[in-house]
Design a protein around this nucleic acid. Structure first.
Length: 420
RNA sequence: GUGGACGUAGCUCAGCUGGUAGAGCACCCGGUUGUGGUCCGGGAUGUCGCGGGUUCGAGCCCCGUCGUUCACCCCA
């Protein structure tokens, strides 16, 4: 029996796992520099949290959730997205009772039972933030700018930002009446009509040319915004302009989760094929209350780590491997190994990374391994070195060696490494 | 969930109208009693995704299945 990973999961193993770490940590850096704090959350929740929060009519909830019954008969679901779980924790731990906005971030894997495809997995990785409790266009703009900064920090250039406003409840109700009436006049197939009944906005997102043409004259939600929603959206735009973040207003943008209100946005990469959304988010005025919290507004985003990595690879901006370890120790013989273990431990205590050549391969083989590991320095520990307490410290890039004593090793390396 | 393409060594792939499986890279050893990258010589490696069928004979043809991939759908 040969086991393989379950269908459609994204796995990262060396050497690519390094690029994955880099992607994740780069995106996180931008978030941490903005005062967001970690919420480390369960990957499964009460199923009802998602049906209420995300919306029972959404595709995500109606056909893409991994749901099961636990041994106590509870209905449990593997989280398909991050926002409602994060808000559940905010409410449960009273983070919304302190200074507002409460600002949290999360990172980890999410699960959707979809047909896998490049950039779409059944288990995928996202990083996201949520800012709860303050309604301020400047906050919206900052949230967008944090995501933008993260993508730019990765070195991405070939992506664009689409924004729109879904307005408030009144705006949407008025628009929906007119939109539904308009759609009824169209000649559509059965599946599309069903889709429109679930969420008429979906038709704006249809990829078929004929549907796009029909929808060209459809009423646009932006035209129905209330005075306050319009003012808010205009303010967000002016802040984005001040930040010099390029964006385009896309009134046809559709988000698949029911809770979005107000400012919504999407980052789309140009080189990625069908699954090109690398991040997106928006406001959610009613969500806190919907899942049992105070009536507070909020806004956040989720960024796809898998897709950001694919984008970085497509743009060829993933940095090549740095030196793996500072020092590679090659002990010759059993006594030398014991010494190598002791030396490497003390080096690591001094924050110098160090690895040892294990096994009994030839010196040539061990040197090749050292080279492969991309270690910066190498020391061979043989009988003469053990006897004299002096080694040759070899700098691999240049091939030059210098003589070092055991007692001065840490200091010498610290000096050498800080210079570089 | 629907449709198309593809599954051969660790990786990338070749394999003719069906005749008993190969290359490059990587790996190991040696050329140099204890110093890597280049070079030279040598070496190991496959249930040809899996299961069935057709055939004297299947990597190649047929069916099923699992997986990958592209698109729809959906979204990170």
């Amino acid at each position: 029996m040969k086991f393989q990973a379950p269908k459609g999961v994204s796995e990262y193993v060396p050497p690519r796992s390094r690029a994955f770490e880099w992607t994740r940590d780069t995106l996180l850096r931008s978030i941490k520099h903005s005062g967001y704090q970690l919420v480390e959350l369960p990957v499964f929740e009460d199923t009802e949290l998602f049906t209420r929060g995300v919306g029972a009519s959404t595709d995500v909830v109606s056909k893409e959730m991994y749901t099961f019954e636990d041994r106590g008969g509870r209905s449990i679901t593997l989280r398909p997205e991050g926002t409602v779980g994060a808000l559940r924790a905010v409410i449960e731990h009273g983070l919304d009772r302190g200074v507002l906005p409460a600002k949290v971030f999360y990172v980890g894997q999410f699960f959707r039972a979809e047909r896998p495809q490049a950039g779409r997995y059944r288990q995928f990785y996202s990083v996201g933030i949520e800012a709860v409790g303050v309604d301020d266009p400047a906050l919206d703009a900052e949230v967008i700018s944090i995501a933008y900064a993260g993508f730019r920090a990765l070195g991405l250039k070939q992506f664009h930002l689409d924004i729109t406003s879904l307005g408030d409840g009144q705006s949407r109700a008025a628009h929906k009446v007119d939109l539904v009436a308009f759609i009824k006049t169209l000649d559509l197939d059965e599946a599309t009509i069903v889709r429109a009944q679930l969420n008429p906005l979906r038709l704006f997102d249809d990829k078929r040319e004929e549907v796009r043409a029909m929808m060209a004259t459809a009423p646009i939600l932006l035209d129905y915004l209330s005075e306050s929603s319009r003012a808010h959206f205009l303010a967000v735009q002016s802040h984005l302009k001040a930040l010099e973040i390029p964006f385009s207003i896309n009134p046809r943008m559709v988000r698949g989760l029911d809770y979005y209100t107000g400012t919504t946005f999407e980052f789309v990469h140009d080189l990625l094929g069908a699954q090109s959304g690398i991040g997106g988010g928006g406001g959610y005025a009613g969500l806190m209350e919907e899942i049992g919290g105070q009536s507070l507004p909020g806004i956040g985003f989720g960024l796809g780590i898998d897709r950001a990595l694919l984008a970085a690879e497509a743009e060829n901006v993933v940095p090549t491997a740095e030196f793996a370890s500072d020092l590679y120790l090659i002990p010759l013989g059993a006594a030398a190994k014991s010494t190598a273990l002791i030396i490497s431990e003390s080096l690591r205590d001094s924050n110098i990374s160090c690895e040892i050549a294990f096994g009994d391969r030839s010196l040539k083989g061990a040197m090749k391994a050292a080279d492969k590991s991309r270690a910066r320095y190498v020391i061979v520990l043989g009988e003469s070195e053990l006897a004299s307490g002096e080694f040759e410290l070899k700098h691999m890039a240049s091939g030059s060696t210098s003589s070092v004593t055991l007692t001065s090793l840490v200091q010498t390396l610290q000096q050498a490494l800080s210079v570089i």
